[in-house]
Nucleic acid binder design. Sequence first.
RNA 1: GCCGGCGUGGCGGAAUGGCAGACGCGGCAGACUCAAAAUCUGUUUAUGGUGACAUAGUAUGGGUUCAAGUCCCAUCGCCGGCACCA
Length: 812
Amino acid sequence: MERVYNPKEIEKKWQKIWEEEKAFAASQDFTRPKYYALVEFPYPSGQGLHVGHPRPYTALDIVARKRRMEGYNVLYPMGWDAFGLPTENYAIKNHIHPRIVTQNNVKRFKEQLQTLGYSFDWDREINTTDPNYYHWTQWIFLKLFKAGLAYKAEMPINWCTSCKVGLANEEVVNGRCERCGAEVVRRVKSQWMLRITEYADKLIDGLDTVDYIERVKVSQKNWIGRSHGAEVDFPIKGKQETLRIYTTRPDTLFGVTYMVISPEHPYLTKFSDEIRNLDEIRAYQESASKKSDFERSELAKEKTGVKIDGLTAVNPVNGQEIPIWVSDYVLMSYGTGAIMAVPAHDERDWEFAKKFHMPIIQVVESAKGAVDVNQAAFTDVATGRMVNSGFLTGMEVEKAKEAILNYLEKEGIGTKKTNYKLRDWVFSRQRYWGEPIPIVKCPKCGYVPIPEDQLPLELPDVESYMPTDNGESPLAAMRSWVETTCPCCGGKAERETDTMPQWAGSSWYFIRYTDPDNRQALASKEAMEYWLPVDWYNGGMEHTTLHLLYSRFWHRFLYDQGVVPCAEPYRKRTSHGMILGENGEKMSKSRGNVVNPDDIVNEFGADTLRTYEMFIGAFDLSAAWSQEGVRGCRRFLERVWKLRDLVVDETPGELTADGYSRALETKMHQTIKKVSNDYESLKYNTGIAAMMSLINEFYKAGKVTREEFRTLLILLNPVAPHITEELWESAGYEGRLYQAKWPAWDEAKTVESVLEIAVQINGKVRATIQLPADVSKEDAIAAGKAAVADRLTGTIVKEIYVLGRLVNLVQK
RNA sequence: GCCGGCGUGGCGGAAUGGCAGACGCGGCAGACUCAAAAUCUGUUUAUGGUGACAUAGUAUGGGUUCAAGUCCCAUCGCCGGCACCA
């Protein structure tokens, strides 16, 4: 064995051995307890692996390796989310088929991941672009279609001017494309949509049954945006029709001073004959339609609007006549596109009322004291009590809501209504490199699904992948593929030419890992019943309202269809923080602060990179890269390496003669406990710190017993698998380290035999004393008093002893 | 604006309400070396003191408690998400 620590050599050696021995293959023995650990599979980009990737991968590799040592049958898989725009764009630019580009990128990514020594079960590798995989992506789409959850709609979509593709709402960030940052404009197009809104309640309520970190739950809830309220019909003066509005504050109905409808509201057309200032209204509609959604919200500071001359609403609870306005602060896409304005108790209405000099009527007062609704809207529901509100006057807000809802329903004026911010999922992309949507459009039969036995519908080879400005997919130009016959009537028909978004393949990939080669089904019942749900899923916060929500939707749907055995796909979800550049900024080529993982592996070794990324700081917070920090971790591993020179053939716990052993035994048990717990709770940094501290003790003692060294190797193995496996072999321990059993700690042995007790007077430490572990409260206090006798000048009014920690004497 | 999270040495960061600063980095001093690097040892919150020690100290101001970085109230600052959703 080498004298010096040479990671290049030993890392290759062990990676080869693990592969040959199939060390980390998940067993199909369904009688053993299972553990399914999952990390988000990467998009194999041309840039190769980023130093951000190893952070979550190492974290769950630690968990997976520990679980195997604890006797679980572990599934820790990896694959490729390989459909996507960058690949397609690269293919166009360099005239290479996207399939080839993908193959090359996957190869590079896989090599890079393999140099890091992850315990992935590579036999289960999957690729979303493999027809045997997307067969089942298409199959799920057909299920959705048949269940009425996939539909085609003519609607304004978010069109990225640079990618030349429609985007889902979730993919638009501040009016710009999430991917490329280019401006997003509205375009009307016929699109495939998925009715995720149908699942809004299930997606919110399901969150109560899973163990996700709080901020993930909160953002999903906010994104779905469920609110409870009422729809109320306001009669229009002199007409049969009523104006239906949505409100979450029906209790404030007596405070309505005007109404507002959205510029797109159909009544503006329907009642155009009645409207006397039609030109003005048309002009306003025109200017509103020119604004993008982004501009509309950007200009939120300044409200605009026009009063409709000729239409008047009537308040159904008190008969008061109310003017109707048009303003773009009311959105057609939420609620009914019309609101009742209560400026006294809504900030937006208040602002609008101030600008256009509308009356402000207070109908809620605060139990805490006077409020002046001419200065600001009063929106506090908790302390509110009704005034000026007819039969509601005197009630608390919550009571009043109930009372008015009952009244509205009884009188047939309104109904309870729940609304959501969530919109249906735009599922079409006008690009080549995605799963073809398995639908045929027949002039007689409409949209017809392709028979299941004809799946997968493979992507044809086309000559040009160039995106088109007219919004058609490149597939549309391939007539021989487009022209087909209707599966229903046999007549001439055309294929759908849009493809699925990148989120399709990743919405169910964790199911495929349980049975990746199945040709009859997306996975066998037995495999799904055994492996699902995923026990621990870690991924980026940026996927909270995209991938995570989409995949929960699909899974819940499959559960309702009886395909999968559980309602929620992931039992536990955690998130890692970003790794920033050395200057604390996000890593990017333009900032020149990118760190390449290959360079770190070459210079320091994979074990150092793994250790460093786990030691860098709290797992869920972002952390800046530090080359000096990397060096420190390498130094730690060097010290572990050299520790073998200090190994002595002695039994731990029996060497009290030199006074070192008992203390070390305690430290050992404390470390086993700390490391075991920290690996479970994402506190890798303190777990590693505990091991550093332990070996510092070994160095101080000048020796380490065979048993202690063995335990240390097991504890460190999940973090630094290669060096520990090598040391294990050279020290001659039995079998392979990866087959070893995770050590247990003895709680009794984690307690120090000699207690260091702080003695405080009035909370300030005045002395430190040593006492035997089994000291009584009385003796501890007496010893404490003795230690600070010269300072005890007053009367002691209280004596506190905190077991094993301190004595506090309170004197006057 | 709303919702989350955070604020601790020169730096990354530790602390079930119980001795703040574990562990690492960097610095300083020493050992080894002709020398340097690497390695090892010691030291490292600030102020005062040769020293034991004393005093102050976890963004700011209050409060609860025998005891507060930790709990409560208010303020300031930073980061992330959502943003006219009635």
